[in-house]
Design a protein around this nucleic acid. Sequence first.
DNA 1: GCATATATCTGACTTTAGTCAGATATATCG
DNA 2: CGATATATCTGACTAAAGTCAGATATATGC
Lengths: 290, 290
Amino acid sequence: MLDPVSRVRRFNRAVTSAVGALDTSFLGRGRPLGAARALNAIGHGRTDVAEIRDYLGLDSGLMSRLLRSLEDEGLVETTAHEDDARRRVATLTRAGRREFAAYEALSNTQAESFLAQHSQREALLAAMDMIASALTRERIALEEMDPRSEQARYCLGEYYAELGRRFKQGFDVSLSRDPDAKDMRRPRGAFIVAMSDTLPIGCVGLKGTDHGYAEIKRLWVAPAARGLRLGRRVMDAAEDAARGLGIELLRLDTNSALPEAGQLYRSTGWSEIPRFNDDPYPDLFFEKRL
Amino acid sequence: MLDPVSRVRRFNRAVTSAVGALDTSFLGRGRPLGAARALNAIGHGRTDVAEIRDYLGLDSGLMSRLLRSLEDEGLVETTAHEDDARRRVATLTRAGRREFAAYEALSNTQAESFLAQHSQREALLAAMDMIASALTRERIALEEMDPRSEQARYCLGEYYAELGRRFKQGFDVSLSRDPDAKDMRRPRGAFIVAMSDTLPIGCVGLKGTDHGYAEIKRLWVAPAARGLRLGRRVMDAAEDAARGLGIELLRLDTNSALPEAGQLYRSTGWSEIPRFNDDPYPDLFFEKRL
DNA sequence: GCATATATCTGACTTTAGTCAGATATATCG
DNA sequence: CGATATATCTGACTAAAGTCAGATATATGC
């Protein structure tokens, strides 16, 4: 009935009016939207004035005045930055934290009531995740993290769960060659997480070995982020990290039940090699010379 | 990692900035956003001034001034309404149509470039459809239509395709007891389509028979609209239509491969009865006394 | 026909957002 | 130290959006 472009535009119309409604609900607290947005940015931990200005896309004059009005209301205090007295740092006062909490409550209530009117919650949330990831595509940041960090462990948990669903025989980490966290940390290796806003949406591990090569492990992209060519991006980052560590040969193992992974490797310069380990799960092996 | 409310809020943030970007693109044509929105509302067929005002949520003074500025630009003409000379009707001039087309082109380009950067187009579109339907939930309208109308035929096509996917043996309409369009039109029956904006997202047929009962046929809800309790709403509408036609007994057949349908019937006063036709597809039969 | 209701318009006003050109204070580089 | 760059602030301004109290014209019910 509708062509793809009309479907996108139908979505845009729906969302425009929903955003408008959310904005108006923020006006209920007797403060212009600009000031409310600035307060919320500070509440969410953006304390550096330049950072807030950049995030909200404001002129420096306007930003300054918004801060002043929040100060006049007694919600915000500004001090000079420790390392650079030209920069200013904004923090919420006690009253500011209370006001911020009130905005948070408004947002939460609105989100909850939206969810409550829908009986297929998980499908709806998955759709929202997917669109949020697509819309914030340019803002996805790749960060090197400790493989034991909360974000990394979340990714690994999702990764194992997905293998469990996709392998006919299921997946039990303890049977697999679970890499030692130390091997995926500098200087032996690295662990890279793709963050969209505060949400981890993909990862890859570079595991150092003592056999003259390093291994790529735990490549995962959240279902909601597939189609954004993120797999390729994290793999590129892992290869860069490997080069930085002086590694010249990479190997990896995978399973033919994950065809999209195999396709990615083949299209990015990896070549299939014979089995090089005795892990029970993989049935495909690749290597790439850097 | 994220609780449901945070996921909704992440979506809201993503979408807020995307909407802002769309708005700014509209400013490129040298006209304030308010005027551009009014022009687009007229171009999309909202000609009654009160209707535009209502749609855009504007004060009557502001609306009047926007119309005036569009008239001054030579893009819009207003005339008195035929039936009520107090009301005004706005139409685009030739120049107005040209300008409207330019805005349309902007929107289309923006939508296309969003789609182009994503390789899982169909999944992304399905997610957008789902969210658009959820957000415009209160604006879903049930309309009685001819079962041969474009909208009805679209729904039926989707319905048959879904049965084909869900029945192990597939589905071939010609083997089923395809109701005559005449039986699903007044005065023998009715055909109801649920419209979200201009998109049909569900349907149900009420088919008159000569056996002392009418049948419910072709109950379908678009995958993107599931979870909105739309099935229940269209069924209620069909029952109302039946009551209006003096029908006292309803019957329907369905298949256990469609468990959500069976559940709907059981929870809305239908009771299971023995087979009452020789259609090869159904294996469950219900009736309800009105 | 008259009172009342409705739809739009006009004029006078305020608030919010945004722009721009300096001013001020601090940092950095040679 | 001095030149230059950077971060923020201030003042003066404009544009856009929105509000509100009537004015005007037309419709409707008795």
